[in-house]
Nucleic acid binder design. Structure first.
Lengths: 138, 138
DNA sequence: TCTATACCATTATATCATTACATCATGCGA
DNA sequence: TCGCATGATGTAATGATATAATGGTATAGA
């Protein structure tokens, strides 16, 4: 087991904010939250530093296509590759296991001579709630 | 057959620049190229507009994790989902067929109740040349 | 106490992208 | 031909995201 040193106050504040949001937030959105402001966090860099640490721990993931950050669905965090599916309408996002696709994807990259590091998968579409809403609109 | 109206001068200049670069460039990097500047393109917006059109035509892809743009490997362009593998060291990038992975990925998302639109896959690692270079370093 | 380390604060700046609005060229119907 | 709609373009300003540079504070251990 790797030792998981306890999070600092700033890191906890940011993680709690993301967990409560249940959707991806940009660093500046986090900064604007009352719960974050009242804890004394007031510069972008403070947020980014906390996010860096949380990402190292696997507790937060970055969504590249939104420039935003999402709390990991697992309390303990993880660094295995995962995918995300993001609602175009409400931005609700869900973390998905890649169900072995990462193996195939990695193999394609290796076939091209690359040594593969990270694999990121992001899908966009409509979440269940927004699908229903769209159906009602006709 | 869909009619493919001819590209405008700005669009051609940008596409040619990306094709010659053989790697992803940001909009501002494109803007700084002599070949682009001498054609009279001098504002970011001009570049972004050309890129929008080229992306609609499937002639250029956007790499989300770099905020950069890459010319499509096929002359005619396409809009099918593809993946990219990007060298962490030199930024050389290659477009990859997803070899049916997109079907599985889409299925996972649909299992979560999402209606899937776009699928984006980006991998990072080392390109063949940089792997060799790293090996020589020991 | 001294020093090393980790964490954090502040300001400024770099980087990426869009909004707002004016202009120009082209094509098309009256 | 004239008037007008349309779309591409130009310019300036701004918004949004992220990092650099510098230094302060707290704590732990020699």
């Amino acid at each position: 087991m790797t030792a998981k040193p306890k999070l600092t106050k700033n890191q906890s504040v940011v993680l709690k904010a993301l967990t409560r949001a249940k959707k991806p937030l940009t660093a500046y959105e986090i900064l604007d939250l009352a719960t974050v402001r009242t804890q004394g966090l007031k510069a972008p860099l403070t947020i980014y530093r906390a996010l860096d640490r949380l990402r190292d721990e696997g507790l937060v993931h970055r969504i590249e296509s939104l420039n935003a950050f999402l709390a990991c669905c697992e309390k303990a965090g993880h660094t295995e590759p995962v995918g995300f599916v993001i609602c175009d309408n409400c931005r609700k996002s869900v973390e998905l296991r890649l169900s072995d696709c990462e193996t195939h994807l990695g193999a394609s990259a290796e076939a091209a001579g690359f040594q593969v590091g990270e694999i990121r998968v992001e899908m966009t579409g409509l979440c269940p709630a927004c699908v229903k809403a769209a159906a009602r609109q006709g």
